[in-house]
């Protein structure tokens, strides 16, 4: 028992070191966000903290981070939900429902193939589509592109998690009189909830960081997302470190809260589902 306490303490100590390593650059971002450019250039530890960078990103002529953050949250959440639904359905069908190997293999190879393409090759076609469909410079255009980009990740991850579920479970459900849809919804999904949560979080994150399409498919803060606003601080011949740091930090917080809440919600659903099952 005593030994167990010691090993627990050691484990936590080691993890706290990891936490420190992960957070160190984040602290540095916060510190930079409170510095003037002159203080950043001198590399000093001691400086007079200023909130100017934060004022600038919310009220400055260049950026409206409140709008960008709203767009980012809308886009990333929508993409996570769409990819979650379409990806799980397709992955379940592909991995469990007796498709011929040619069909499943073909879809898998196609997904891998488009995932391997450098995204730049899709930019011009998607731009022209978005203009043609009249959704240019709206979050919808960005959602469309991010959905396609993240679909391979969603499907492949979910296929893996479905493969781990014992087959007897859905057989039993079907014998009990469930349709396959009901078995999928009531039995299988609750079991793979941790996986589903991880997939949704990753899709959210990828959409949250994406820059190329968020830039190409938008022109004003009506459709733009945070990475575009941040990239505006990397300028032709200097980098506005302070504002960039402030922008990165501010944008991180709502995303973190949302991700944690969503993760908890999805995983909590797991226990509920398991009890039902």
């Amino acid at each position: 028992m005593n030994q167990k306490t010691v090993s627990k303490a050691l484990l936590n100590a080691a993890l706290l070191v990891v936490v420190f390593i992960i957070l160190f650059p984040v602290f540095y971002i916060v510190q930079t966000s409170l510095k003037s450019t002159a203080d950043i250039y001198s590399g000093t530890f001691f400086f007079e903290a200023k909130t100017r960078n934060y004022e600038e990103i919310f009220t400055g002529s260049r950026s409206n981070f409140a709008e960008l953050t709203r767009n980012s949250l809308v886009v990333s959440s929508a993409v996570a939900v769409i990819c979650g639904v379409i990806g799980s359905l397709a992955a379940y069908s592909i991995s469990r429902l007796n498709w011929s190997r040619w069909v499943t293999g073909g879809i898998l190879v196609w997904l891998l193939f488009i995932n391997m393409m450098p995204p730049i090759v899709f930019v011009t076609p998607y731009y022209l589509w978005a203009r043609g469909a009249g959704i240019y410079d709206t979050p919808l255009a960005v959602i469309m592109a991010h959905m396609v980009l993240n679909m391979p990740l969603a499907v492949i991850m979910m296929m893996n998690f479905f493969a781990e579920v014992p087959k007897e479970l859905e057989e039993a459900a079907v014998i009990d009189g469930c349709t396959l849809w009901q078995a999928f919804r009531m039995v299988i999904i609750p079991i793979v909830r941790p996986g589903l949560a991880a997939m949704a979080v990753l899709v959210f994150v990828f959409s949250w960081k994406e820059f190329l399409f968020a830039l190409s498919l938008t022109t004003t803060s009506a459709g733009r997302t945070i990475p575009v606003g941040i990239a505006n601080f990397v300028q032709e011949f200097n980098i506005r470190y302070g504002e960039m740091a402030a922008g990165s930090f501010v944008a991180m917080i709502p995303a973190l809260i949302l991700v944690l809440l969503a993760q908890r919600h999805i995983i909590k659903g797991l226990t509920v589902g398991a009890i039902k099952g």
Binding site: T124, V228, Q235
Partner: peptide, 24 residues
Amino acid sequence: NLDVTPFPGMLDKTRNAVQAGESE
């Protein structure tokens, strides 16, 4: 109205706009 774009994105954005049906 200004479309304020990061420098590395200027080339692609211009190129896309001039290829569309009508430039934005």
